[in-house]
């Protein structure tokens, strides 16, 4: 009898923990968030560090949608984000031009980078409206698709006076970070390693609304 009680208790505890790892907010059911931001505040930030030169760049033309069930974030999260290569800015016009040329990202032939969510794991409840998790997805860059795992955090804000100043509806803020190895995406250039690093850390800060 005792082992049965122990198993039952652990099952109940684990199911309680799983259900706890989702947003505790006013909204219920499936929610879809649109990340299109005409103000260009959503951004992807990337950086390169080499002995000769360090630089940071941004890309602001982001679009896409994600959806999930409030009651089961980890198992229901799906969606796709798209970033226009043309929106990359490194602060130097000539470098921007080089980055978008066929020697680097080839914006003419591959105008978009995409991230398509495949699965979510290691969900941790940081606050009632804040989750930390790992998200596995297909990242497509320069026409090549590779699976990456990003460390992510999501904050769910119920609609209020403050959120309405940003956008109508509930807001979902997402931060995610992952590494891009340029050679994995068939990006090869003589200055990789000396002026541009092979490994590029990518950081995403985006806010979506469920009423856009």
């Amino acid at each position: 009898m005792k082992p049965f009680v122990a198993v039952l208790t652990s099952l109940l505890l684990s199911s309680a923990m799983i259900s706890a790892q989702s947003f505790k907010v006013k909204a219920k059911g499936e929610q879809t968030f649109n990340f299109e931001d005409k103000m260009g505040r959503n951004q992807v930030v990337f950086s390169s560090t080499t002995p000769l030169e360090d630089f940071t760049g941004t890309a602001n033309e982001i679009s896409g949608k994600v959806s999930f069930d409030i009651a089961n974030f980890a198992k229901t999260l799906k969606g796709k984000l798209t970033v226009k290569v043309e929106s990359i800015n490194t602060g130097i016009e000539l470098r921007n031009h080089h980055m978008k040329s066929d020697s680097w990202l080839d914006a003419a032939d591959y105008p978009e980078m995409t991230f398509e969510i495949k699965s979510v794991s290691d969900v941790k409840q940081i606050a009632d409206n804040k989750l930390a998790f790992k998200v596995k997805g297909n990242f497509k860059l320069h026409g090549v698709t590779k699976e990456v795992v990003a460390d992510a955090q999501a904050i769910y804000l119920d609609e209020n006076d403050q959120t309405q100043k940003r956008a109508p509806g509930d807001l979902l803020g997402v931060q995610a970070s992952f590494q891009v190895q340029l050679s994995d995406y068939d990006i090869d250039n003589a200055i990789i390693g000396s002026k541009v690093s092979q490994n590029i850390p990518v950081h995403i800060n985006i806010v979506g609304s469920n009423k856009l």
């Binding site: 951004q43 940071t56 941004t58």
Partner: peptide
């Protein structure tokens, strides 16, 4: 609103 830091040009 979200308490994080953005980068702006």
């Amino acid at each position: 609103l979200f308490g994080w830091t953005d980068k702006q040009w």
